Simulated scan of single mutants.
Amino acid sequence: MRYSLDQLEMFTLVASTGSFSAAARQLRKTQSAVSTAIANLEADLGLVLFERGGKASTLTPAGEKLRNEAELVLERCLQLEAHANELGERVEPALTLAIEVPYSTLMPPLRDFAERFPHVDLQIRHPLHGDVAELLARGEADLGIAFSQPAYPRDLGFAQMGKLILSHVAHRDHPLSKLKRVDFADLRAHRRLVFSGHNHKLPSSEYLDATRCWQAESYAALLELARTGLGWTTLPRQLILSELASGELVELPLTAYPYTDWLVGVDLIWAKAHVLGKAGLWLKRRLGEHKVFEVDREGKRTTL
């Protein structure tokens, strides 16, 4: 058997997309190249991996069993590359962090990093469309801190750092702020101001909708729109503590969550095969040790 890692990657990608053409587009190869590679893999293994009769390319029973084995091999290869990277002693001159959570929650590890590596420059990017994983996949960021997503690509690793509260709020003069109880029908009747990167991507966000919707690519823009009374929005509570304390913004008492806050996980994300130097590895470990939390409405810390 002389199959390659490229063939295994193509095999798992066709299996996940259900299409030779879709896999080819993601790999930036021709469909014929992917088809030939899979055919050669089948010849090497002596097995038929895909049923090729209909529009979709479905796995045969043998292909279904070998898919998990192939994914395990690829996972181990990524671990090998990551381990090799960790053995290096290079201190990189600069690092890029992609951060979509409130920066105040990350100040302790960033202060420690500044003291430990005073000559390493740090660039912080706030993804306009909320896709930290995409920046990591393209190699445009070394590490990412983002609200948890239901799934990540196989080549990304992640570790949960904690949880933050997302609050549904409106200006004190907004009609929704006058209601003692707010249900989803009430929300739908008023303009929604939404962070474009999270529209229907976070858990339970599919219930938050409205017939009229304005999208913005930053929390700062949403905050200003909400303070003007143009609609209701959902923001990290850490960003609006002063507005809540002054009464300028009011948390909406949703009937669906009468006794709990909307907790969303915060993940540290990295590309498994990306080469991190000494400073990057140190920061990755320090961020992994740092716990993100806040106090809920009952005075308790949010926990993992």
Rank of each mutant, 00 (worst) to 15 (best):
L72Y: 06
A43T: 15
T36F: 12
R76H: 01
R90W: 06
E86N: 05
E51H: 12
A94R: 10
A33L: 10
E89G: 00
A98N: 00
G46E: 05
T58L: 06
L74Y: 03
V34P: 11
A70E: 11
A43R: 14
L97A: 02
G63M: 04
G63N: 06
Q79T: 10
T60E: 06
T36Q: 14
A70D: 10
E75G: 12
I38E: 07
N40F: 03
E89K: 00
L45W: 07
E92S: 06
I99F: 00
V73Q: 13
V91F: 00
C77I: 13
K55F: 06
R76D: 04
A56H: 08
S57Y: 09
L47W: 03
L80M: 13
K65S: 08
N68P: 02
L95W: 05
N68V: 14
L59Y: 06
E89Q: 02
A84Q: 09
A39Y: 15
E86P: 00
G54F: 03
E86I: 00
V91M: 13
N68R: 12
L97W: 01
K65V: 15
L95F: 04
Q79F: 02
L97E: 01
S32L: 07
F50I: 08
R52Q: 12
A39L: 13
A39R: 15
E64K: 14
I99G: 02
H83A: 13
L41Q: 01
A62Y: 08
